[in-house]
Computed example of a mutant assay.
Amino acid sequence: MLDFSLPQKIAIWALPVLFAITVHEVAHGFVARRLGDRTAQMMGRLTLNPLKHIDPVGTVLVPLAMLLLPGGFLFGWAKPVPIGYNNLGNPKRDMAIVAAAGPLSNLLMAAGWALLLRLSVELLQPLPWAAQPLFFMAQAGIAINLILMILNLVPIPPLDGGRVLTGLLPARQAAALGAIEPYGLIIVLALLLSGVLWRILQPVIQLFNQLLLVMVGLGGSA
């Protein structure tokens, strides 16, 4: 991507980041409601209004700081949607399904942005004034959603991948993995800051990016 000024970066990334984080959380709450837990609905969190989901640090400060860092990648988080574990019909299994809903929503959004990227390419000649901003925003939308999807699938609780794995493991092993949760974010941040986790995740993100571009007929050229 070109070397944009900070205001340009914010204009390009703001909507993709807000949608990626907001829909991710709503997906958790929506699936939980389908499985018997109405906690998120009763607390007014089953809404696409980003103001209901914004975390001042994870949704604003961290993404903004990442935009200022050279060579970094953008990520963030929203306020977690509350889930009443005991309200679920089969808590252990259903919690894994609820957790998987977030990354799946990011994959679907990445596919949607890929379609918009294809549209922007088609509009580049007749409507360049509209196509160019859409092109860069669509690239940002694909990137942030793939980053959130793959990062959240890391099998360390409280990330979604950790909750999915907890739901799949036998009770004893699940309890052992769950004991990591209070330290999970510290572990993930340490791995990210060291560069180890990013070196593992980057090829996977690039693979999904190429697959999406091929899917919309861009052949990895965008």
Results as ranks from 00 to 15, higher is better:
Gly76Asn: 02
Ile97Gly: 04
Phe73Glu: 02
Gln41Val: 14
Ser105Thr: 01
Arg93Lys: 14
Gln125Val: 15
Arg93Ser: 09
Thr39Gly: 10
Pro50Tyr: 07
Gly84Ile: 13
Pro91Phe: 02
Val57Ser: 08
Leu108His: 11
Arg38Glu: 11
Trp113Gln: 05
Asp55Leu: 02
Gly102Gln: 04
Ala111Glu: 06
Leu48Asp: 13
Leu108Ala: 14
Val98Pro: 08
Leu48Tyr: 09
Asn86Cys: 11
Ala65Leu: 15
Ile83Asp: 01
Lys92Thr: 13
Gly36Lys: 03
Leu68His: 13
Val98His: 04
Asn86Ala: 14
Pro63Asp: 08
Ala100Val: 03
Ala96Met: 06
Val121Ser: 07
Gly58Val: 01
Leu35Met: 11
Leu67Pro: 12
Leu107Thr: 02
Asp37Arg: 07
Leu119Tyr: 15
Gly58Asn: 07
Met95Tyr: 13
Ala101Arg: 00
Arg45Cys: 03
Leu116Glu: 03
Leu64Gly: 15
Ile83Cys: 03
Ser105Arg: 08
Ile54Asn: 00
Met43Leu: 15
Gln41Pro: 13
Leu119Gln: 14
Asn49Ala: 07
Leu115Pro: 05
Leu116Asn: 04
Leu69Phe: 07
Leu119Phe: 10
Glu122Leu: 15
Ala40Arg: 01
Ala114Met: 01
Val57Tyr: 11
Ser120Gln: 04
Val81Thr: 15
Met43Ala: 15
Gly72Val: 10
Leu74Trp: 13
Leu35Thr: 10
Leu51Gln: 11
Leu74Asp: 09
Ala114Trp: 00
Ala65Asp: 14
Ala96Cys: 07
Gly71Gln: 09
Asn87Met: 10
Val57Gln: 10
Pro63Met: 10
